[in-house]
Amino acid sequence: QDPIVIKFSHVVAPDTPKGKGAERFKQLAEDYTDGAVKVEIYPNSQLYKDKEELEALQMGAVQMLAPSLAKFGPLGVPGFELFDLPMLFKDRDDLVRLTQGEVGQDLMAQLEDKGIIGLAYWDNGFKIMTANSPVISPDDFLGLKMRIQSSKVLEAQFQALGAVPQVMAFSEVYQALQTGVVDGTENTPSNTYTQRVNEVQKHATVSNHGYLGYAVIVHKGFWDGLPEDVRANLEKAMAEASDYANDIAQDENDAAMQAMRDAGTTEFHDMTEDERAEWFAALRPVHEQMAGRIGADLIQRAYAALGIE
């Protein structure tokens, strides 16, 4: 009998945490199902690009993806924009409380209407702020042109800081930072390092002000059509692969931070508690502003889970 094939497509390199997580899942899934399932991985946007992959999944052209959480808003589940809110999580424990708790599972359940089953949350990490001038207090952001990926929440975040948000194609970012078309950006340490943004940014603040993460998703029709025992084995494989992926994401970010500090092209500022309070005060209004999109109720539930207020 031919094995069941799962095409797992993603947009990053095979040796990133996401890529390695996918490999681990492939290994475990094929082991646990005794070869009844075959996982084919297509890294590096080989098949579908960032903007295409969700539609490709919905059409059944691929079975499994790990898009960033920000992709689900435009898909029609704006609740996922919760994860974009600035200063929502203090640390990784907070994040786990949300993703493994009721809120995270409810959000995943909302994907079912879109023909998608959410299997797991995978980390990229918490974001640092980089710019060509020091960005220590919120007032430092006045007039800075900050590159963002398309997101209404991130747009509001930089507006609240008095900065000018700029949506910019990824391939233009490096040069734009180098010449000063934009002054700064935000990203996780590992992304900042692998995209070499630190080479063209003089200052960085380790602010952990926002979060970047992925969800591993499968095509609903495909998933529901799997035999019960196969599905159970795949779930088990996914749970273990997720722990693995999240662990190496943490390691990767630590290593990237160290490498960037060693490179010495960027002056790093580690945020103090007082500064954090200042940022929190400046950015908290963004939560209220975005309540209309994300849902005031959802935000309140997140607050309750995280003990905010």
Binding site: E55, P74, L75, K114, S150, S151
Partner: peptide, 17 residues
Amino acid sequence: HHTWKGGQISADLEIKM
């Protein structure tokens, strides 16, 4: 037709895809 059923919107303009 497929996209119409899915109800996706664009990221920046937020118009129907």
